[in-house]
Design a protein around this nucleic acid. Structure first.
Length: 829
RNA sequence: GGGCGCUUAGCUCAGCUGGAAGAGCACCUCCCUUACAAGGAGGGGGUCGUGGGUUCGAGCCCCGCAGCGCCCACCA
């Protein structure tokens, strides 16, 4: 069994050329393993839950989810995306989820069509799993409940990175820094003397709870332990010392707000400061001024209440200007700001109650265990492990898995409501595993009745859904039938291969390792093959937003799937590859060549159309050139096999392709005449068998890359599929007898091809047809090479149309071929 | 700030444990030769980013530097 943890693609409308690229890499490995005799477990999945789908549904149907609404069975979405998002039609949660489910079915059908066309050797009779499906939900909920029971999952109220557009918490792994324009504003705080603070976020001034400077900063030594008053709002805040304050940044003293950034959170926690939050979950400032604001300050705050961050910033700058507490003009800078990776406005930090899963972010022991797992994993290419390690080493908290969204796996929990109707978050009501999956909004906890929902003394559902990675991190469990199919699970888990791109090492790869480590105490797979990205010719990552995406289907239609696969497989593991239409043309050329040479071998030298009988029997080979070709082919088999064992499909392809072209150009030309019978029956048989054996081997070596043309050619002389035929064995592995000295390597083949090449060169240089006869060719070379040439003398003369072949022994290094062509008017005969 | 990768022909890239610079594309020339004109045969073109070092010998090994890309951290 060889099992592959296929990436479940995010269903978001169209397949990207990058997907074709990386999925082809995996498919070449799958096909190789299958030919090696493995039962290849190669499931397909779709990642359809989560925010990506919700957004697509919003845009596609022109709706937005309003969980307050009642379900409307006759709801009809308007369709299309209104320019103004506020014109989106509200839909109940259930209606919204139904639309999501409807759209993903359509999208998944398109994806499957694409993968079939590309020739992915997935067993489509096994229904692809979907991350919103019952199996995935059951696995997600089971894994979560077990972690809850073991204390690895916990709920906490804490400052959280928050996306104000999607109105959900986001995890560290989903953050992205973006360079944004900003400005330093110099504010005057009032004490014995004014204290000048520089800030890029003046609108957070009403949320200021302290000033902080470095303990060793002499400028502020005297102020430590004293209080100052904030401008405009008249709030008294302490001046404190902390090592994280940097003397050379701004004026060296910072205002701590609840919360402007993650450093504020650290200061707030370590210095035990009060909360004075002003940002609501929709990104607007609260209606009321925070505690401690002076009467005059309350009037100023009223000017800001309800405004967005951007609006509030503009207004407070005006107010500070009027009060004289803004010193000088704001000084423009560029700085990096944290965004949700799919977001369009900067993240805020708000205090919310969320579920977390331990991932080593707050636990050195677990962190070390995960680093050890990373060392146990075989990485392809090896240096990708660095990304895994630097991610773990940079974790600053546990994994926030709850999302305030709708189209996802719900947390399978309820909370009892006390007499006042307030939930008791400390004593969640937990279902038994055999009831999973459950929807706490629809299902009722044991011991309660539906009419107790939301009632004092009754219960309420956990309103959140899991982050999509909380499900994706369980793809081995979901695909291998964890707890659902113990037999399959025991044979497929841990899996053999995780193929994926390098941009999701910190999310998918890491989180999958976390879940497997915590649940099973082992790695989820033995190997991780990391593919690169596809870059456009400007060396930028291809992406929709840049408008440079080529639809893969167009290329498949224009050049064929084999050509697209050829280009894909030329990208080495982990390496970003530039999209190059030329490579598709080259791939198509190779495909055509395969068909043509197969036609020649199988039909033109007709004798050989009865299958593989005797192909491994050297008794059929009477010519040393033919032995030599097969010796050379044997080296290729060894090389290609080793490359595949090392997951270096690109190297395997390169070697096989190179051999194939030389084979067509030289070997086929050399033996063509003999194959037609010019040297009698024995010589013809020898050529025919060597050609068939070489073709059989080459088709099998090329099968993982170009499944269509190789299968077509194979079908001309076999009944079964090439793709379940055996991968070629090397002579050593097959126990074939060693060849004698002169034919133990490719020397005869190499020397004969070299002489033929020199003859062609002479004809080409003299602008003569290749059919031109050679009156005399004089080959100067070492005795060893001349002996090799002599053994192929007839074939070389035949292929080069050489009347007289003369050899001259010379010292190593002064070899050469002198070619004397027939006169142009001399008849070819 | 820490780390990783890359830098070889005009372009895209191979060069495995060090042994006289390669492929394809593009360009130019020639060729309908009985597998292939949606083809074939040839040709020109590179001081292997840079400065040192090790070695009989370095594209490859060691040290430094530069450029490009990426990962992580920082975010007053």
């Amino acid at each position: 069994m060889y099992s592959i943890d296929t990436p479940p693609l995010t269903v978001s409308g169209s397949v990207h050329v990058g997907h074709v690229f990386s999925f082809t890499h995996t498919d070449t490995v799958a096909r190789y393993r299958r030919m090696r005799g493995f039962a290849v477990f190669y499931p397909m999945g779709w990642d359809d839950n989560g925010l990506a789908t919700e957004r697509r549904v919003q845009n596609f149907f022109g709706v937005r989810c309003d969980p307050q609404l009642q379900y409307d069975p006759s709801f009809v979405p308007p369709g299309g995306s209104p320019k103004d998002r506020s014109r989106e039609v509200p839909a109940s949660r259930r209606n919204f989820v139904e639309l999501c489910a409807r759209l993903v079915v359509e999208d998944e059908a398109k994806f499957e069509e694409m993968w079939r066309r590309l020739g992915l050797s997935v067993d489509w009779s096994v229904k692809p799993y979907v991350t919103i499906g019952a199996t995935a939900q059951r696995a997600s909920q089971r894994a979560f409940l077990r972690q809850l029971a073991r204390g690895e999952a916990y709920k906490a109220e804490a400052p959280t990175l928050w996306d104000i557009d999607d109105r959900t918490a986001v995890a560290q792994a989903e953050l992205e820094d973006r360079e944004m324009p900003g400005a330093y504003h110099r504010l005057a705080f009032h004490g014995a003397a004014d204290v000048i603070v520089e800030t890029t976020r003046p609108e957070l001034l009403p949320a200021c709870v302290a000033l902080v400077a470095h303990p060793s900063d002499e400028r502020y030594q005297a102020l430590f332990g004293t209080e100052v008053t904030t401008p405009l709002f008249g709030v008294r805040v302490p001046v404190l010392a902390h090592r994280l304050a940097e003397p050379d940044k701004g004026s060296g003293i910072a205002m701590i707000c609840t919360f402007g950034d993650t450093t504020d959170v650290t200061w707030w926690r370590e210095l035990q400061l009060p909360v004075r939050a002003i940002i609501e979950r929709d990104g607007r400032l609260k209606a009321d001024a925070p505690a401690g604001t002076s009467a005059a300050g309350a009037d100023a705050y009223a000017e800001l209440a309800g405004k967005t961050v951007k609006q509030a910033r503009a207004r407070i700058v005006e107010l500070l200007g009027e009060s004289g507490e803004l010193l000088g003009e704001p000084r423009p800078i560029t700085h990096s700001v944290k965004f949700y990776e799919r977001g369009s406005r900067p993240l805020e930090i708000v205090t919310t109650r969320q579920w977390y899963i331990r991932n080593g972010g707050r636990d050195a022991t677990l962190r070390d265990e995960l680093l050890t797992r990373g060392k146990e994993l075989h990485w392809v290419p090896p240096y990708m492990r660095q990304r895994f390690e630097s991610w773990i080493e940079g974790l600053n908290g546990d994994w926030l898995v709850s999302r305030q969204r709708y189209f996802g796996v719900p947390f399978p929990l309820w909370y009892p409501l006390d007499a006042n109707g307030d939930p008791d978050f400390e004593s969640p009501l937990v279902p038994s595993e055999d009831l999973l999956p459950i929807d706490p909004e629809a299902d009722v906890p044991a011991g309660y009745a539906e009419d107790q929902r939301y009632q004092p003394g009754g219960f309420t559902a956990d309103p959140d859904v899991m982050d999509t990675w909380a499900t994706s991190s369980l793809t081995p469990q979901i695909a291998c039938g964890w707890e659902d199919d113990p037999d399959l699970f025991s044979r497929t888990f841990p899996m053999d291969l995780r193929p994926q791109a390098h941009d999701i090492i910190r999310t998918w790869l890491f989180s999958t390792v976390v879940r497997s480590h915590l649940e099973f105490g082992c790695l989820p797979w033995k190997n991780a093959a990391i593919s690169g990205w596809v870059l456009d010719p400007d060396r930028k990552k291809m992406s929709k937003s840049k408008g440079n995406v080529v639809t893969p289907m167009e290329w498949l239609e224009k050049y064929g799937a084999d050509a697209a696969r050829y280009w894909s497989a030329s990208g080495r593991p982990g390496t970003d590859t530039t999209f190059d239409e030329n490579q598709l043309k080259v791939g198509r050329k190779l495909a055509t060549k395969i068909l043509n040479v197969a036609k020649f071998v199988l039909t033109t030298c007709g004798a050989a159309a009865e299958g593989d009988d005797g192909l491994d029997d050297p008794a059929h080979l009477s010519e040393e050139l033919d032995h030599s070709l097969l010796a050379s082919l044997d080296e290729l088999v060894v090389d290609a096999t080793e490359s595949f064992e090392d997951y270096d499909y690109a190297r395997a392809l390169e070697r096989v392709e190179r051999f194939f072209w030389v084979f067509c150009d030289n070997y086929v030309e050399l033996v063509k005449g003999r194959a037609y019978g010019s040297a009698g029956e024995a010589g013809g048989r020898s050529a025919a068998y060597a050609l068939r054996r070489a073709l059989s081997t080459l088709l099998r070596l090329l099968a993982p890359f170009m499944p269509y043309v190789t299968e077509e050619a194979w079908s001309w002389w076999h009944d079964g599929s090439l793709h379940v035929a055996a991968w070629p064995l090397s002579d050593a592995a097959a126990g074939r007898p060693a060849r004698d000295a002169i034919t133990s390597d490719g020397l005869v083949y190499e020397v004969a091809a070299t002489v033929l090449s020199e003859v062609r060169k002479a004809k080409s240089t003299q602008k003569r047809s290749l059919a031109t006869p050679v009156v005399r060719a004089v080959v100067s070379d070492t005795p060893e090479r001349l002996a090799a040439l002599e053994s192929a003398n007839a074939d070389v003369r035949d292929a080069g149309k050489i009347r007289e072949l003369v050899t001259v022994t010379v010292a190593d290094g002064s070899a050469g071929v002198v070619v004397e062509l027939a006169e142009p008017d001399e008849p070819a005969a």
